[in-house]
């Protein structure tokens, strides 16, 4: 029982990170029908830049803010220079462009920050809190809290603000959105920026627990993709749910089977979901028009 509680705590922690990455995925997917394989690199860039800004002597909050802003700028640049020029690209083409972007960003990170593994200090004290026989680190709580705040903010943005609604309009029908006077190009940029910022936030939250290096983004990105599919591609809250679930399944699976197979368990679950219900938990089935 205690063991299960412990798994649940770690599961929700990684799950929160997956949820943020998956949320970023689904924002971009909704706005532009692109599955962004560089999503994980946003996480890595957010964390790595914060680490080096701290090293350069900036205070934690300033470094955090600047690294999120920097990553958002990378997101904007990705849209501007890699996605926008490839008009009318097929699914395969956009997949390869974003894979290319992922490799490119990783290459850049390797050049700038090298191959070493870095960590970030926890936001507050590092004294474990005991719940029965299970322990929880303050940083675990920060991760969950940070994720909850980010998710609610995103939800507020899409439900309540003019710009959020305009982005949603683009995702339903670009031409119609354009005709009612929405600047579709700018909305795409905003969604990439927002998605990158979410990624960076995930990176800041998780690095005090798991460390970061130039290549850490790949697996995080792929897991975010898994979570987005698990929840239902294109459904933002589904993505969050998928992320949390994936985190828990993975941690429990790793605990009971073998930690070496942790990643395999996640992908195995996704394969099963794809075989049984590709539209995911909250997704709708689509019919092809002839």
């Amino acid at each position: 029982m205690d063991q299960l509680l412990q798994f649940l705590i770690s599961g929700l922690t990684v799950g929160s990170i997956y949820a943020l990455v998956a949320l970023g995925f689904s924002i971009i997917y909704n706005a532009s029908d692109v599955v962004n394989f560089a999503q994980g690199e946003f996480v890595m860039i957010g964390a790595m830049s914060a680490i080096f800004m701290l090293k350069a002597g900036l205070s934690y909050p300033v470094a955090a803010f600047l690294s999120i802003a920097l990553t958002a700028a990378v997101g904007l640049a990705l849209e501007k220079f890699a996605i926008e020029p490839a008009k009318n690209a097929t699914v395969v083409t956009t997949i390869i462009i974003t894979i290319g972007a992922s490799i490119f960003l990783r290459g850049a990170a390797l050049l700038i920050w090298g191959k070493e593994i870095y960590g970030l200090p926890p936001f507050t004290s590092n004294n474990p809190i005991r719940i029965g026989n299970a322990t929880i680190l303050p940083q675990n709580l920060w991760v969950m809290l940070g994720t909850a705040v980010a998710v609610l903010a995103v939800k507020y943005f899409f439900d309540r603000t003019r710009m959020g609604k305009a982005i949603l309009a683009c995702s339903f029908n670009k031409k119609a959105a354009y005709l009612v006077g929405i600047n579709v190009k700018r909305m795409l940029l905003v969604s990439y920026g927002l998605s990158a910022a979410l990624g960076a936030a995930a990176g800041l939250l998780v690095t005090p627990i798991t460390f970061m290096s130039y290549g850490s983004g790949v697996m995080l990105g792929l897991k975010g993709f898994c979570a987005a599919i698990l929840g239902g591609m294109g459904n933002s809250m589904g993505a969050v749910l998928g992320g949390l679930l994936l985190g828990i399944i993975e941690t429990v699976g790793a605990g009971f089977i073998s930690s070496g197979y942790k990643d395999a368990i996640a992908f195995f679950v996704i394969l099963i979901v794809l075989f049984v219900k590709p539209s995911g938990i909250l997704g709708k089935e689509e019919a092809e028009r002839v």
Binding site: A82, P85, A86, A89, T90, T93, I96, I97, I99, G100, A101, S102, I103, F104, L105, R106, G107, A108, L110, L111
Partner: peptide
């Protein structure tokens, strides 16, 4: 040397945009 990964990614993007 260290530029290999970067260049590889750049080639991929450029080819896909200009010569899909």
């Amino acid at each position: 040397e260290d530029f290999e990964v970067l260049i590889f990614g750049a080639i991929l993007i450029v080819i896909m945009i200009f010569l899909p």
